[in-house]
Amino acid sequence: MIDSIQTHDTKPKPDNDKILLKVQGLKMHFKGPRKSIFPWQGNKMIKAVDGVDFEIKSGQTLGLVGESGCGKSTLGRAVLQLKRPTAGQVIFEGRDLCKLTGNELRITRRRAQIIFQDSYASLDPRRSIGYTIGEPLLFSGMTDAKIRRERINELLHLVGLNPNYENRYPHEFSGGQRQRVNIARALATDPSFIVADEPVSALDVSVQAQVVNLMRSIQVRTGIAYLFISHDLRVVRYISDHVAVMYLGRVVESAPTETLFSNPQHPYTQALLESIPEPKWEKDAKHEALKGEIPSALDSPTGCSFASRCPFVMPHCRTIDPELTLLASEENHHVACHLITEPNHLNES
């Protein structure tokens, strides 16, 4: 296994500004418990994803961060139609995935793959990893076993695993190695886009770095785009070109990575950054914690979903939902916050 492929340090700027994936108004609403004992009053709705827009260009990475209940994992699956969205459009390589079904969807979906957090549960425990990596190839019509074998070897090599291990079973590998297998499988059909749902969260720190390096080098080599979902801003910073922060089903801030980390505008983003423990010794480090708890997605209050915990909350925030607006001063930096966009309300009692 060859670690830290040293041939690339920087990601070249993508030379085509082609928008690979455009998501608009995506919603995932689930039926919750009944409002009362009378069935005709209907059910409460769980708005896991409540109107999300974003774009990803070829060869770029969008980092999606948020804490539990923000809907990021649901969003990842909804984009790939693994769970059908309640509303919205997912335009991938020019076609709206939400409108595709059956065979058409299956074929188009080969170009968009997914990697999960649990590296063991993502693999069939009774199949060798060679079989698992080769299976997508069967669906693309690569029926010749010899050609498949070659491609499997190629993929194993690409992810830094010894090709001799193709007959081994998932439980014989470590977590980091299994994740490499998952990456190899995702790459088998030569996709242009991969959704990575917390791919390194379950791994040891030193192994996390290995896998992130691998993903970056693959991106440089193949020009693949990632939707990198994670709760860990530290990891997201190293792999993303652009970051979107989610809270209770909505995007509250999105900006190019540098900008988000150096100049966060939304109070939630600021609180997140303040909460992250940094692996650096600091004398008398004191960090303020954000008060309160993440509210349940069941009783979504009116107004801004963050109002209950926001240190800068104004009365206006509790009644009107802030829209994601472009900040005039920055490039592609969007915020959904009344404080930023309508500061005149600050003076209301």
Binding site: L82, R109, Q113, I114, F116, A121, E135, P136, F139, N182
Partner: peptide, 10 residues
């Protein structure tokens, strides 16, 4: 997840 992954690969 491995069943979801199967769906994803088609």
């Amino acid at each position: 997840e491995f069943i979801e992954a199967q769906m994803a690969i088609g």
